[in-house]
Design a protein around this nucleic acid. Structure first.
Lengths: 136, 136
DNA sequence: CATTACCCTATCGGAATAGTAGATTACTGT
DNA sequence: ACAGTAATCTACTATTCCGATAGGGTAATG
C-alpha cells in the first residue's frame, strides 16, 4: 500500500502544477486545499525540494513552486523519491536490488517470476505518465 | 512492498504444487526446503487451509497438501488472502474499498487516476497467472 | 508413545504519522 | 533604518501500529 507521504506528495505536486503562474504557494494553502497536516506536508515538500522538483522562497510572499515543466516530471521518478522501490520485492528491483536471504535459486523462484512481471508493467505505466498527464 | 508472509505463502504453495503425489508434507520439510521459520510458516499454512487452498493431516505421516489443481489456483486470489488489497490505495480497491478522508472529489483526484491504472494492470497479471504457471 | 498439526500469547523492532519548539530568512510599512 | 510579521527550515520527540518471530501447551493420529 502507498504511504500517505507518497499520496500527499503527488497531490501537492498536482496542486502546484495546476497553478496558472509561478508565484510561490505557502505550505498552509496547499495543506488546506488538499486536507493535509501542515507539518507532515512540510517535510514532504522539503524532500521534493531537495530532489529537484520544487523551489522555495522564504518570508512574506514566499512558498513553494515547481521548477520543472509538469510534462518533464516522470511519475516513476516521483514514486521512487517518495515511496522507494517500485518493485514489490528487493530481489526484483533495479534501483534498490538486494538478494533474498532465503532464496537459493533466484532464476527459478516462483515469486520472483511473478513479481518481475508485475514490476515491469507497473514501471511502464509510471514512466508513461507525467505530472501533466495526471494533474488536470 | 510484499510482506514476507505473502512471499513465504506463495513459495510454500509452489513447493506443494511441485510434489508429484498428494502425500502430505510436514511443515518442517517445507520450512527447511524454502528457508522459512517454522513457526511463521505454521501460521501461514493455517491461513491457507482456512482459505480452502490446503488440506492438513495430523499425526505421523501428516502434513499439508494442495486440495485444488494448481491450474485452478488464481494468483490474484492468493494475493488477496495473504497480502490483502491489490490496489495501492483503499479508494482504488474493489474488494476493500474505502473512501479517503482527505479527498473531496475522487473522480478528479490525480493520485486516484494514476493508481487505478496501476491497479488494473497488476490485477490483470495476477489473474492471468495460476499456481501452475509459476510453480515450475 | 511419537509425531504432527493446532492454538494462544508475548515480544521485539521499525516504520509511519504527527506534534512541538525554535531558528532563520525575507518582505513591508513606518 | 528598524520593527514586525510571514514564511520556510531544522531537529527532536511521542505514539501508534504492524510485521515478524519465538515459546509453550493442546489435540489428533498412526
Amino acid at each position: 500500500m502507498l504511504s500517505k507521504k507518497t499520496k500527499y506528495g503527488i497531490k501537492a505536486l498536482s496542486f502546484l502544477a495546476r497553478q496558472e503562474n509561478q508565484i510561490p504557494v505557502p505550505i498552509a494553502d496547499i495543506a488546506k486545499s488538499e486536507n493535509i497536516s501542515i507539518k507532515f506536508l512540510e517535510s514532504i515538500l522539503l524532500l521534493l525540494r531537495y530532489s529537484g522538483f520544487l523551489g522555495a522562497k522564504k518570508g512574506k510572499g514566499g512558498g513553494y513552486y515547481l521548477i520543472k515543466d509538469p510534462k518533464d516530471i516522470n511519475m516513476a521518478h516521483v514514486y521512487r523519491i517518495l515511496e522507494g522501490p517500485i518493485a514489490l520485492l528487493p530481489c526484483v528491483s533495479h534501483n534498490f536490488y538486494e538478494k533474498c536471504d532465503d532464496c537459493v535459486d533466484e532464476a527459478n523462484c516462483s515469486v520472483h517470476k511473478l513479481m518481475t512481471e508485475v514490476r515491469d508493467n507497473t514501471l511502464m505505466i509510471l514512466e508513461n505518465n507525467t505530472l501533466a498527464d495526471i494533474a488536470f
